[in-house]
């Protein structure tokens, strides 16, 4: 049983890590604690449902549609909600992201109805048996895709010129402005990336369960993941996601299915008390 729980914990944790990575990219770039990240994941799942069931697009095109729609959603959120509030208190901006998630949920329920939708994709849904261990192909693909996305975005930030400008913007907005960086464009790009990563995570969550607004609660596990891993750390978000996935599965299997939230948020509280900058975050670097 241990290996089985370990596998599903890692697989789910990879998806949480992906959503958390998107959250961390937005937070690092624009200092916005985006409570709508869970709803962005739900939107991704519904965009996929729309593309596959309503528009009848082939799977590859449907994925592209979902990515484009999520990116647009992120950019619009930044232009119309975040940018006008530049310089306002963090609380005002947090309230706006909470409002955004409520509005998105209501919009989905009006448009698609409150009942869940089944996401039918050509992804394999079989099981690979290795001894006692049953490996769901879908879990495996979700995990591998998540890791591929994390690697691609990691390489993008580390090795490309635009990635460098995004890291510079995250380091300091005014410093980026005086250096000739188009800070607004970089911030929009960060919101697009954040929403796309959430959307891909939402696609897999919807595929593993059923597509409904209730997926938001799972998408929001990205928040404890990011805080545990370290708000300012990109690898921290991924590690935090994996930890949350593992904790959820182990607590669910060995203690009680209802205990997972208690254990996750208990760890969150512990981290905030003893190491508020998170496992991989660092305290403010450098001299003044």
């Amino acid at each position: 049983m241990f290996a089985q729980v370990l596998f599903s914990g890692l697989a789910l944790g990879s998806i949480y890590g992906l959503v958390a990575l998107g959250f961390a990219v937005v937070f690092k770039a624009t200092d916005v604690f985006n409570f709508a990240q869970g709803m962005f994941a739900v939107c991704g799942a519904y965009f996929a449902v729309t593309a596959i069931s309503a528009l009848d697009l082939p799977f590859g095109l449907a994925i592209l549609f979902m990515i484009a729609a999520c990116a647009t959603l992120g950019v619009l959120a930044h232009i119309f909600l975040i940018q006008p509030l530049a310089g306002r208190s963090m609380l005002a901006i947090i309230m706006v992201t909470i409002a955004l998630s409520i509005v998105l949920r209501a919009g989905i329920e009006i448009f698609y109805g409150p009942q869940g939708r089944v996401l039918t994709t050509p992804l394999p849904s079989g099981v690979i048996r290795i001894g006692d261990l049953r490996i769901s192909q879908l879990h495996l693909i979700a995990a591998l895709t998540s890791w591929a996305c994390m690697a691609i975005f990691g390489a993008f930030f580390r090795f490309t010129s635009v990635g460098l400008l995004m890291r510079a913007t995250a380091d300091g907005h005014e410093a980026a402005l005086v250096s000739g960086v188009n800070v607004n464009a970089m911030n929009r790009l960060a919101w697009a990336i954040g929403a796309v990563l959430a959307g891909i995570g939402g696609l897999f969550l919807g595929q593993l369960q059923i597509v409904s607004p209730e997926l938001e609660a799972i998408g929001l596990l990205a928040l404890p993941a990011v805080v545990i891993g370290g708000m300012q750390s990109i690898p921290g978000a991924i590690i935090g996601g994996l930890l949350v996935g593992l904790i959820a599965q182990f607590a669910g299997s060995y203690i009680s299915p209802k205990s997972t939230d208690i254990v996750i948020y208990g760890l969150l509280l512990l981290i905030l008390m003893v190491r508020p900058w998170g496992l991989l975050g660092q305290r403010e670097l450098g001299r003044v």
């Binding site: 460098l164 890291r167 510079a168 410093a175």
Partner: peptide, 21 residues
């Protein structure tokens, strides 16, 4: 700028490359 406003978490060369973009 006043106060220099360098990118503290980037390397020296990356700081310069931002200016070179």
């Amino acid at each position: 700028p006043e106060g220099r406003l360098i990118f503290k978490n980037l390397t020296v060369e990356d700081n310069l490359l931002v200016g070179a973009a």
